[in-house]
Nucleic acid binder design. Structure first.
Lengths: 117, 117
DNA sequence: TTGACGTATTCCTATGTCGGAATATGATTG
DNA sequence: CAATCATATTCCGACATAGGAATACGTCAA
């Protein structure tokens, strides 16, 4: 099987650095039309439009027609699943490293067993 | 240009759901050898080995030879850049939505200007 | 209406993917 | 040594990508 479509989910969409750059720009500057993004990110217009398309399909941005330009705005809530997932790992680097190590190393060899939170 | 290599960086590595599953398993159960992961994740052995290879190349896991098996352990610190990035968006869904909206909509049309944190 | 502008879409190509099957490598046991 | 176990690697095929160039589409202005 090939790799999942970039437009399949937020994790894949955000794996592309230029798409993160677009999100960063929208977060920092607020809603922006395409040509504005083209100028500030130094990318070609089709490239920007395509990336915006992907971001729109996964729900990370939304567009509203504004005359002949299209205003894109961030929908940051779409990042929540990713934030939730990665945050579960936060405890591994905050809180003393020693305790983590202990904890991880403490439970090395048991048979596969029902989940133990 | 084609899509970036999965082993290029943490974002790409983690875009694949089975790799997240492996990380989750290591986080939950502690260090594990390959065949253990094969059993608990219901994937083929080569598949698991390949995914572990990617995770190892981006520094998310490390392996230590243990007789003829190989013990893999989570290196969660590798997720920090991703956590840092996505956390910058947290404020958009915590804190009252209204204030966010205002703030974002307030700065709609200015010329491209030097970064304003 | 005509033309210019802003944006989206299509076609192309080089490339990277992921899984399965088969096989290679390496350690252990008899 | 031979057989076996645990893991890694290679080769394959089907497929999705990302960018560039060209072009289509929709809207505004003269």
């Amino acid at each position: 099987m090939p790799r999942a479509a970039a437009a399949a989910d937020v994790f894949n969409a955000v794996a592309e650095p230029r798409r993160r750059a677009i999100l960063d720009e929208l977060a920092r500057r607020g809603p922006r039309d395409v040509s504005r993004l083209v100028r500030s990110l130094h990318l070609s217009q089709p490239t920007v439009s395509k990336h915006l398309g992907v971001l729109r399909r996964v729900g990370l941005v939304s567009a509203t027609a504004e005359g002949r330009r299209r205003l894109y705005r961030l929908n940051a809530a779409g990042l929540r699943p990713m934030h939730d997932w990665v945050s579960r790992y936060e405890r591994f680097w905050t809180h003393h490293l020693d305790r983590i190590k202990q904890r991880a190393e403490g439970r090395v060899s048991h048979p596969d067993s029902p989940h133990v939170p």
